[in-house]
Design a protein around this nucleic acid. Sequence first.
DNA 1: TTGTATGCGTTATCAT
DNA 2: ATGATAACGCATACAA
Lengths: 345, 345
Amino acid sequence: MTLDPRNTDPPRRRVTMEDVGKIAGVSQVTVSRALSDPSKVSKATLDRVRAAIKATGFVPNAAAGALASRRSRLISALVPSITNIVYSSFIQAFSERIRANGYQILLSETGFDHHDEEATVLAHLSRQPDAILLTGIHHSRETRRMLLASGIPVVEVWDISDTPIDTCVGFDHAAAARTVAEFAHDNGYRSAATITAADSRARQRQESFAQHFEAAGGAPVVDVDIGGPASIASGRTALTQILASPDMKSTRPFVFCSSDLLAHGALIEAAKRGIAVPRELAVMGFGDQDFAAALEPPLTSLRVDRELLGHRAADALIARIDGHPITDVTRISFEIALRDTVQLA
Amino acid sequence: MTLDPRNTDPPRRRVTMEDVGKIAGVSQVTVSRALSDPSKVSKATLDRVRAAIKATGFVPNAAAGALASRRSRLISALVPSITNIVYSSFIQAFSERIRANGYQILLSETGFDHHDEEATVLAHLSRQPDAILLTGIHHSRETRRMLLASGIPVVEVWDISDTPIDTCVGFDHAAAARTVAEFAHDNGYRSAATITAADSRARQRQESFAQHFEAAGGAPVVDVDIGGPASIASGRTALTQILASPDMKSTRPFVFCSSDLLAHGALIEAAKRGIAVPRELAVMGFGDQDFAAALEPPLTSLRVDRELLGHRAADALIARIDGHPITDVTRISFEIALRDTVQLA
DNA sequence: TTGTATGCGTTATCAT
DNA sequence: ATGATAACGCATACAA
């Protein structure tokens, strides 16, 4: 099989605790103890064991440890996409907290398809994670079954569910969108449009926004579904479409975007066309990315504390693993980050 | 320990191949075979085994498998940051290819500190990955030693080294920056500035750009080191600083940014100040993110095929794992994505 | 404080 | 085509 001449060495045996112990003059168990709980080993042997570890370059075998202890010290995280800054910054906060507790993260992207998720969940469960994080609250029947059967702690994030698989940490997207709808209406906007990416939570917000804006007396909301992931380019295209709609010719529409990236694209397109923001057109984003305040004009957005969300999700799992009782549902608050792309009444 | 009354159930025993076999009327080994190589099992028993698996909800234990086979089917990836789109999009391409080959990814962020990297590498090696990916070619002595001792395939990405630990896939940053310097000079620019993020490769490019621009006869290059990760906000601030420099008052400077994000900030700041791009100021980015073409004016950038880089890195590892001979160093090409923020001679 | 014995759930080897 | 048996490297219970 091997064509590479350098590869003909006999497979080098890995250094085990047994080997380390032999050098230190102790048994394998003592080496194990020296590593897991040094206080149970005498100072003298501890030193000898440590010296032997350094001398041999011993690296513990976590697979063997996991098998014996039935704890993998691994936590699975499934997110739709890591190139989406919304999820990657969340994962960053989550990971940070998880690692601080001595766990490692097994990360996978699931896309936005529930079918893929099923296979991914199975692959992750085979690694015997001590807990698992899922994005969203909608999962296939089989996914739920597997998770329940595994018996490990599960946290569903980003959304709120009354019936989580185990626990959930997120916020109410419908309520958030309603807040935006009322904010728009209260400030005198009577015509509105939405730019929506292909994401179930984005869609949920769009529907809630439209419903409440219209209920408050606003004109029917024009929606542009970009049918894919958010980008600056799609934001530009979408605004172009919106402006082509006859309903929008009238007066100063309020454009609610499902992400700051889309809002950013809308701003660029508006500037290109010489449309004054916010005098002739209001733009609002979602997520309050760090670039929102650096745009020109600074973007008004709905702020969600993603870092807090990541930390809370990690805390929930750690608590569950340790057997501590915790609330099943944790709501993260949101607020409007008021800047210059919306004109107040 | 447990205060939660729901948690008093006896720890539910996991379903094993033994259990599945008992139901299917075969031995544990046959179940194993049915899963790993169905062709070695008769149609009839295969059906019974599969039925039993479905009935029990059996999930294989990868830790046990890894221990017995000495193959974890896990590949480690260490990147500086996942919130940086440059790395996350690379990882996305890498993961995609890795998964297609039946491996899972253990991902960690290392920051830009070599000391953190050491601890992270050790943690990863303890999971017995079948291969490992590192970002960059500068690693501590101890990191190199551990990696070499582990005997697993290693790929270093993003940069080129003549003496890789094992293999490397990347491009020559100095050459890339030189290309930009010559491009600027050839098109009549005689004054230039750089905006540089805190990243060793960004710094390397800055130095190469300055050296070659000056060698070609350009004025001394003004550098603004933002001392942290790239952002639109820091790009704006940096351009402000550059414009304050007396050397820049003269004529039409060429601003080379270490990332598109910084260039984007520079464009926003220029627009705010009413500076015409490219007539009064040229701006060039690095990386050619997908938003570059959607900016106004569309951003000229140095394009690197990150997707190709991810795939090549994955291919290199897979080949090494399979014992196939491969070249140690793979160079990825780069090119200038010419758009409107630079005026040609 | 240290050691012995045992088992974790698979895969690999060798039989049948 | 199938099974018996022995590792794999560590942690846990128990003994000394």
